[in-house]
Design a binder for these strands. Structure first.
Length: 592
RNA sequence: CGGGGUGUAGCGCAGUCCGGUUAGCGCACCUGCUUCGGGAGCAGGGGGUCGGCGGUUCGAAUCCGCCCACCCCGACCA
């Protein structure tokens, strides 16, 4: 591709509203342009690397038996009503009506669509197992898009769906994906770690996320340096701390004027945070799938003062469809007094108590009376719970639940997520097959996603320096960038043209800077765009019968004879590819 | 949705407090000449509903009101 024909230009300055480095660089290098919040156009350069990423994904999916198909983005709401997600999901699912006044949705994922396909096609156990996948556009009306391509509303995702007769089959496909994902991310040059994760709006029982670790990531990961346990904070568990036996003391009401926070309280009473109980008020939305009517209920979560509530865990144990912070008006009717609240004496609420509170005797808790707290509050004796569960957010330093060593935290971006769905969709949508006994059984499903655009952004984030992007060969928009130090006629011009033609001839992908620009401009743009191999063609080295080769990451260029240029280029590219291939390691299975 | 911020040419900004010529500057773009190995110089030129609507005023980018868009921080996810 000649740069004089390329449909984009580099920007010397980045738009002011870009902050993430991947966003700034992709914008400056002319890969992407923004149309609206979380809505982007991919220009030719980005499209090329996207295609390469998708190519790698296809190879890996095909290698584990995947068959590519394509499902519609606009779908009738009926199937979503059948699965129950029409009711379960809120605004993330974009809805509209067609001209016939039918409810329609913009697909945010495709479990319903495959399930519809499956119930039509799959009749017998003889047709299983199966693995289908697609690389398709999705729309999610995210609460907040951010960081360029990292979190957007319209995005393309590779999603695959496995269909099996039993759990063993599902497990096999799940493990296949687990390994394929690790291979594929490393083939793209992106280091990732896999962690146990929440199933979120997919439903199902087991799930892993593939995380690219970066301080700018939005997910919090906990991992144990000694035994390897790693999980998203949403589901992470830590070792239970046993409190040594302490006799239950008599309940005592004390005046604590103005002490409305745990911090105030510890200072006022001179007790550690771990000797207090705090409550968090949330409103849970409850309802049955397949039914329209929802009811809100106040949830009172009780946890020890030194810990925080993990809302994902709380959502699971309460089986609420959604949780949100409660307003003062919603709290008041229960009898709770903000700042001096406790579960003692509350009416009509769902009390969820963290395990930490049930094992900690003689805590200080609110008296539900302005200006007063209660001392020596004990679970069971003084108050009861509707649910006792682990609802604590695990933090750095907490003991690993497997080996007891302190856990560490890091941040990351989720680029892939795999789920063992089981029969969550086949049951609700009637995906059954006849087994060898002639009995109808539900298809066992798995679902596996990769955010393609996000993957591109993460690769950009990972491979860059102060001058610009540095694409791994496997996904670079072009393998070679020719900088022609010539304007119009001359030896350099002729040599560049010839080299460009020769390289294209042998199938090398080359971006040829044939613009009438000064050398500095061309070098800087080459660095910005970040093709792995740069060739400089200029009078200076041409006099020695040479052109110059430089890897994007290298400092110095090396001269090679003009006649040998093509073979040198192929060698260098092969070398880069080999280097990348050798970094692809087969990973061990996940730990159960 | 709550909190914070920004909207002036394709991009980066000044001007807005304190209303008053044809609304500026840098980059980018077009023409010409020169230059030519790490973001060149000179000369000339094109490009603006000052986010939108309404109001105040003799007069609004500037003051007032409403609305919209985008970004950042918190609850969601690939």
């Amino acid at each position: 591709m000649r740069m004089t024909n390329l449909f984009s230009q580099t920007l010397r300055e980045a738009p002011a509203d870009a902050e993430a480095m991947s966003h700034i660089l992709l914008l400056r290098a002319g890969f992407i342009r923004q149309l609206g919040s979380g809505i982007f156009s991919y220009l030719p350069l980005a499209k090329r690397t996207l295609d390469k990423i998708e190519g790698i994904i296809r190879e890996e999916m095909n290698a584990i038996g995947g068959q590519e198909l394509s499902m519609p983005v606009v779908q009738p709401a009926d199937i979503w009503k059948e699965s129950g997600r029409w009711q379960e999901l809120d605004e993330v699912l974009a809805r509209f009506k067609d001209r016939g006044d039918h409810d329609m949705v913009l697909a945010m994922t495709f479990e319903e669509a495959v399930s519809d396909l499956v119930r039509g096609e799959i009749k017998s156990y003889r047709q299983l197992p199966q693995l289908v996948y697609q690389i398709q556009t999705k729309w999610r009306d995210e609460v907040r898009s951010r960081a360029g391509l990292i979190r957007v509303r319209e995005f393309t995702m590779k999603d695959s769906y496995s269909l099996d007769v039993d759990g063993d089959g599902l497990d096999r496909q799940y493990r296949n994906h687990y390994r394929a994902y690790h291979r594929l991310f490393s083939r793209c040059g992106l280091p990732t770690v896999s962690v146990e994760a929440d199933v979120g709006l997919m439903g199902g029982q087991l799930s892993h996320e593939f995380i690219y670790l970066t301080p700018d990531g939005e997910d919090m990961i906990l991992h144990c340096p000694s035994c390897g346990y790693s999980a998203n904070q949403e589901v992470a568990v830590s070792a239970k701390v046993e409190v040594e036996g302490e006799e239950q003391l008599e309940l005592e009401k004390i005046a604590t004027p103005g002490a409305e926070t745990i911090e105030d309280l510890t200072r006022f009473l001179q007790v550690p945070e771990s000797k207090t109980a705090k409550v968090v008020f949330l409103v849970g939305r409850f309802g049955e799938r397949q039914e329209e009517a929802d009811t809100d209920k106040l949830i009172v979560a009780v946890i020890r003062g030194d810990m925080t509530v993990n809302e994902v865990k709380l959502g699971h144990v309460t089986e609420a469809l959604a949780l949100r912070p409660a307003s003062a008006d919603e709290i008041a009717p229960s009898g709770a007094v903000a700042g001096y609240a406790s579960p003692i004496g509350l009416k009509g609420v769902l009390v969820v108590v963290d395990e930490s509170v049930t094992t900690s005797p003689n805590l200080v808790a609110g008296a539900n009376e302005e200006g007063y707290h209660l001392k020596n509050v004990n679970y069971d004796r003084d108050f009861e719970a509707d649910l006792v569960a682990d609802i604590a957010a695990v933090e750095a330093g907490d003991g690993c639940s497997k080996c007891g060593q302190p856990l560490e935290t890091s941040r990351g971006v989720e680029v892939g997520h795999i789920f063992q769905l089981g029969t969550r969709y086949s049951d609700s949508m009637g995906c059954t097959f006849l087994d060898s006994q002639g009995k109808a059984r539900s298809v066992i499903m798995g679902s596996y996603g990769i955010g393609v655009g996000r993957l591109l952004a993460c690769v950009a984030e990972q491979h860059r320096d102060e001058h610009g992007l540095m694409w791994p060969v496997s996904v670079a928009p072009f393998q070679v960038h020719i900088v022609a130090l010539a304007k119009g006629e001359g030896a350099a011009q002729a040599a560049s043209e010839k080299l460009y033609g020769d390289l294209k001839e042998v199938g090398v992908e080359v971006l040829y800077d044939d613009r009438r620009e000064n050398p500095g401009v061309k070098f800087n743009d080459a660095d910005l765009i970040g093709c792995p191999l740069r060739i400089t063609v200029g009078e200076r080295s041409l006099k020695k019968g040479e052109i110059e080769l430089k890897l994007r990451g290298e400092g110095e260029a090396t001269g090679v004879p003009v006649e040998e240029a093509v073979s040198h280029v192929r060698q260098r590219l092969a070398g880069l590819q080999a280097e990348l291939d050798s970094a692809v390691v087969e990973v061990a299975d996940y730990q159960d």
